[in-house]
Design a protein around this nucleic acid. Structure first.
Lengths: 344, 344
DNA sequence: TTGAAAGCGCTAACAG
DNA sequence: CTGTTAGCGCTTTCAA
């Protein structure tokens, strides 16, 4: 491994000068600079990030902790976050905590404040208290997409407007004439996605739908679980004409369940999801869903994290980024005319 | 930030003893050990990984570089790799290089050998030469899933048997009575997936199918691109009754293309993919595909990397892990009886 | 069993 | 402009 000292020796200067050449080239005489650069090139020198971090007290790496990369939302988020981070000169290291608090804790303890100057934590089972402790260890900790964080807590948090997203789904379905609604609420690390459901229910109420018009079932945040849960729900409530899932994965599973029960989507059953992951438009029928501004959230999260690192500001509020947006595709349609009525 | 020195002061020992208490507890008198541990607990001390790495010259972190997390194969791989790494006491940091050689280079240069003791590189546009250079910087570099690496190169590589996987697909289709074959070859970072195609073509030839029975088209490794390419191919060759895609994403796109062209899968067209990502069974019709032993490959890759780090051995061979396996689902079926013939 | 001392590779004042 | 000096927080001989 080539060290600064070796470069210095070869360029006939001291380590300090090489360091300067690297960080404050304008402070170095052009001729010297050139010699140093040549030495660097010839020796194939590459700074040791570890040493640099230790000496300077700063790192240019960020860590992103997420519960399960296998959920397609995360990769899409990672892509955006990584781009933003790199654009600003930081590396993004993704840590998969595998839905395991112990693992999360381990990553957090080891990496936060040492390997990474900032840590972005997406939904986990860890409490805010524990996370806040990490923050006291010198790292900038930013929560992201937490559904249950309120303002004025200890840690800053950037999220989407979950309730508004739910509302949008409800309004869409209501406008299509639906009167019977099913809902699949996702429960995963980070607790149930109840804000989204809350927004949905509230919008329904605001439009005059009685409470009993809504049948809710809990589901894990996967296609498989959405399938199972929707199957059960549709069987228990055969008159449902619409289904809202608090995330796209479950919505997709629900569409398959409907198909297997002989219900056509959207003719017999309208399905709307939430998030608008790529799969939403890749599946057939293409899923009507409410889009979260994933890119913007990612960018904003990175921005906030860097602000905290560089500015040292300890902002502690909730930033709600962008507006959810309804994306109508093929999985929703007018409520079917009720059999009984038409039979009358 | 609590340092070793502070702990030492509180426990009335020196830093060296605290360090020993942490790493060689048996070398410390029980009473002292207890005092040290108490101090650690009370102060909430957490070792600084950066300093430790610098002083000891070792890290317990691995980096996994992949071109695009958004391709579902990677998350599935990451999950397995992370578990294996953690089981063995290492952290796994995932770096998304965004299909960009410059980014890859940056991560490699900065992270390999300093932040991470070992680096696993999945398909990228970087040449082996360049990667080998990284290895000389002190990091254990292991290639994974490279389709174009031959044995006895500079870097060790663990992969699957691509050709065998292709063969399996061909044999399946051939046995179903198909005579006209289409193939979608994926081209992405890392070059075309030609081994898989090679295996497919060879198996076809071995079974007596003439070369002109196979129509090949190149596609990017996405559902969208698979859709486009398959559409074009199916239009150009309307008599095709079967389609092999060198990966599942394209296969899924192809099934959709078929549907949009009015071809039923598998009645009019059989489609077989490769990899067996989760989506393969989640889509409808469920995709017949050739499964790669992803978990085993991941585990083996981690194992090899650690072996290199800990044992220092510079193995440089290609490890082909496990056997690909045909998974028959709903997207393949007997070749349709030709119209002309039945009309005669 | 514990401590003293040196140093990992680099940065950051401060002199010169 | 360049060099000197002093660490960053930890590990690691080597003595005591």
């Amino acid at each position: 491994m080539v060290t600064l000292a070796e470069v210095a020796r070869r360029a006939k200067v001291t380590a300090a000068t090489v360091s300067n050449a690297l960080h404050n080239p304008q402070k170095v005489k052009p001729a010297t600079l050139e010699r140093v650069m040549a030495a660097i090139r010839e020796l194939g020198y590459r700074p040791n990030l570890t040493a640099r971090a230790l000496a300077s007290g700063r790192t240019s790496t960020l860590a992103l902790m997420l519960s399960n990369v296998t959920n397609p939302f995360y990769p899409e988020f990672v892509l955006a976050a990584e781009r933003e981070a790199r654009k600003r000169g930081y590396f993004l290291l993704v840590c998969n905590t595998d839905d395991d608090p112990a693992t999360t804790r381990a990553y957090l303890e080891q990496i936060a404040g040492t390997l990474a100057a900032g840590v972005i934590v997406m939904n986990t089972d860890l409490g805010e208290r524990e996370l806040a402790q990490t923050a006291r260890n010198g790292a900038a900790v930013v929560l992201c997409m937490w559904e249950h964080v309120r303002a004025s807590r200890t840690l800053p948090c950037v999220t989407a407007d979950f309730a508004a997203a739910g509302s949008l789904a409800a309004e869409h379905l209501s406008e299509l004439g639906h009167r019977k609604f099913g809902a699949l609420v996702g429960v995963g690390s980070g607790g149930p996605q109840s804000r989204r459901l809350g927004g949905f229910a509230q919008a329904l109420a605001a439009r005059g739908h009685p409470e009993r018009a809504l049948a809710v079932a809990e589901s894990r945040d996967t296609i498989e679980s959405g399938y199972e849960t929707a199957s059960a729900l549709l069987r228990a409530r055969p008159t449902l004409t619409s289904l809202f899932a608090t995330n796209d994965l479950m919505a997709i599973g629900a569409m398959q369940a409907a198909a297997d029960l002989g219900k056509r989507v959207p003719n017999d059953l309208s399905v709307v999801g939430l998030t608008d992951i790529h799969l939403a438009h890749q599946f057939r029928p293409a899923l009507t869903t409410v889009r979260f501004p994933t890119q913007r959230i990612a960018a904003q999260t990175i921005a906030l994290t860097l602000e905290m690192i560089e500015g040292g500001s300890a902002a502690r509020s909730v930033y709600t980024v962008g507006e959810p947006e309804l994306v109508v595709r093929e999985s929703t349609g007018p409520a079917p005319v009720a059999r009984r009525k038409s039979a009358t």
